[in-house]
Structure formats: C-alpha cells, structure tokens
Design a protein around this nucleic acid. Structure first.
Lengths: 132, 132
DNA sequence: CATAAACCTTACACTTGCTGGAAGGTCAAC
DNA sequence: GTTGACCTTCCAGCAAGTGTAAGGTTTATG
C-alpha cells in the first residue's frame, strides 16, 4: 500500500506520515523496488493510533510515550493512566487560563463604546493597565 | 535608559524587546554613541502597551493592529471593539475545543484501571477508536 | 591601572507540528 | 509517447520567542 493510500486510511496526510518517520515517531517504512514506501496493516494500526492520539490532544512527544506503552505488552495500565491524568491536568490549566482571557476580553468589549469617537476604554486600558 | 532597564520597567525581556524591534512590531530604538539602545518614557509606554496586550492573549499580529490604533488618534472606537470582539470569538472557540478534549481525557482516565495489568482501556481506545 | 563582572551588540540555531514548494524519478492511462 | 498523478528528497517558513556564541563596553574592585 502506497503512502497516499495509507494516508487516506489513517486520516493523516502523506507529508505528515513522512514527517513522523523523519522524527522517528514511527519506524522507517519498508520500501518497494522503486523506492516507494510500502505500508501493511500493522503499519496502519500504528498510523491510526497516532492519528487518534494527536486528535485527542496529545503532543507528538506524548504520542511517543503512548506508542511505547502500546507496543510494550508488559506495561502496567497505571503508567498509562498516570500519563493521561497528567495531560488532563495540563489541559485543565490551559482551560482556566483561556477562561481568564475570555473574561478580560469580555470586560474590554463591554467597556468600549464602539462608536465614531477615538476615546476607547480598550486602548486606554492597554495603555495604562487600569480599568476604564 | 538601557535595554535591561526598559525590560524591567515593561515586564518584557531584553531578548523579547530586540525581537519585537527586529520584526518591526516596535520602531527601531535610538542609539547612544556606544551603539547601545536607548529608551525614553515614550518608548516605555509602547513597550508596556505591547506587554499588556500580549499577556491579555493577543498575538503579535493582533498587537500590531492594536498599536496602530493606539497611535492613530483619529481612530474610531468601533474599530477597536470589532478587533477585540473577533478575538473573543476565537478564544471562545478554543475554549470549547479544550473542553471537548478535557471530557475525552476524563473518560479515558476513568476507564483505565490503573493497576499492574497490561490491559488498559486508554490504549485500547487509541488502538481501535472505540470505547472500552 | 589592570582586570573581572556585568552589561551591550549581532547572528545563528532550536523549539512544535507540520505545510508548501522545488527538482526530479516512476507509473498508469490513453 | 506523452500527459498527469503519483513518488522521492531537501529546503524554507509559520509563532513567538529562547539559548548560545563571539565579540565590544562599561563599571566596580583590588
């Protein structure tokens, strides 16, 4: 199976698959006589695994760890759980930062008249750091 | 005032200030006879403005637009408001994506026994895309 | 007065996760 | 046979800086 077929079957792009190979997130694909990469069902499992992990929000480095656990049949599920629980904490932290940001932006929007005048609470607030 | 003093006074790092100058977010600083950058109160206002805008969550490109409005005394506050309202929409979108991610991660964590066994709902879920 | 610490300068590389494009080889169809 | 759609590699670039090197200046101290 060619790279573009593997791409379609996994939901990744050919570019992304080559990129994952280059950074050694996945192993080097076997090659046909013409030098083309050739993928089998086992390769596809890995590609799909990575695609799902990435779209769940895991970084490439996190995917690397998840893949190692995936491949390691002697893993303990506690290791996996810990990894994901830590990720959850980071995501929650990121959410609270964005919520803070949203509140600030909302306040700014509400404080700005939005008319033809130059006077603007948003600009004033960014200029001197105080509310307006 | 030297760059490191301007850095302290604005909450940016010297590196970041030079970077902002290089990408022409801010104008080139005037220079002393020794070639050192020299900042006055006016420069500081701009640096602080950018620092606040960045820490409010605006991208550098958005800061560029905000700075243009800041400097333009003939602006209409409606332009500013529109800019910030659009940003707010993008932030809200980002939040909902992260909330989705958090839910998925929470489900994964809850489904994983977290023990000494290899069997793990997280790995299984990433491997075949179904719930476990 | 020498010298060492603490500044300053530039320029380049690295980060994350790809994507786009160039330049060239191969393959399938008509 | 030639067009078009693949494939290959490599280089460049995005955001928003940070780290490091190599070198010049200034300031403080012995």
């Amino acid at each position: 199976m060619n790279i573009s077929q593997a791409a379609k079957a996994s939901g990744l792009s050919p570019k992304t698959i080559r990129y994952y190979e280059r950074i050694e997130l996945i192993g080097p694909a076997s090659r046909g006589t013409n030098g083309y990469r050739d993928y089998d069902d086992r390769d596809l499992d890995v590609l799909r695994f990575v695609q799902r992990a990435r779209s769940t929000g895991f970084s490439v480095e996190e995917c690397r760890q998840l893949l190692a656990l995936y491949r390691n049949s002697g893993r303990h599920s506690s290791e996996v759980k810990e990894l994901v629980a830590e990720k959850l904490v980071r995501v929650e932290h990121q959410i609270s930062e964005l919520l803070q940001m949203r509140d600030t932006l909302q306040e700014l929007v509400e404080a700005c008249p939005g008319n033809e005048q130059a006077q603007c609470a948003i600009i004033d607030s960014l200029a001197d750091g105080r509310d307006h």
